[in-house]
């Protein structure tokens, strides 16, 4: 990482933190459980890092790293898919008025 990259990364981090604070403080307590599972699914984006490692980058890619990457892919995908499915399931249940069956 070059110094400019580090600074850029810190900018991104700081701005994301402010933005996150603004966006998330508006979420009502009603939706705090879906919020937690949604952010969980979203942070499963670390999957993109795991994918590259599991795919064995570089000319002399390491087998150990690939195995670790593979496990990470499984964990992250479970979070992404499970997180989104559950969030959807929960949000479908929130209704303003009761629906007569």
């Amino acid at each position: 990482m070059s110094p400019t990259n580090i600074i850029t990364a810190l900018y991104v981090f700081a701005l994301a933190a402010f933005l996150g604070y603004q966006v998330i403080s508006r979420v009502p307590p009603l939706l705090h459980t879906p919020l937690m599972s949604a952010t969980n699914a979203i942070s499963g984006i670390s999957l993109v890092g795991s994918i590259v490692i599991a795919g064995g980058t570089g000319p002399h890619h390491s087998k150990v790293a690939m195995v670790l990457g593979f496990i990470a892919v499984v964990c992250s995908t479970t979070n992404v898919v499970g997180g989104f499915v559950i969030t959807d399931r929960m949000l479908r249940m929130f209704k303003r008025r009761e629906t007569k069956k």
């Binding site: 937690m36 993109v48 890092g49």
Partner: peptide, 18 residues
């Protein structure tokens, strides 16, 4: 930060701050 990947920083920070 390790992988130099911005979307990871953004999503992770959002999750962390939440």
């Amino acid at each position: 930060f390790v992988l130099g990947n911005n979307v990871l920083i953004i999503a992770g920070t959002l999750d962390g701050f939440s």
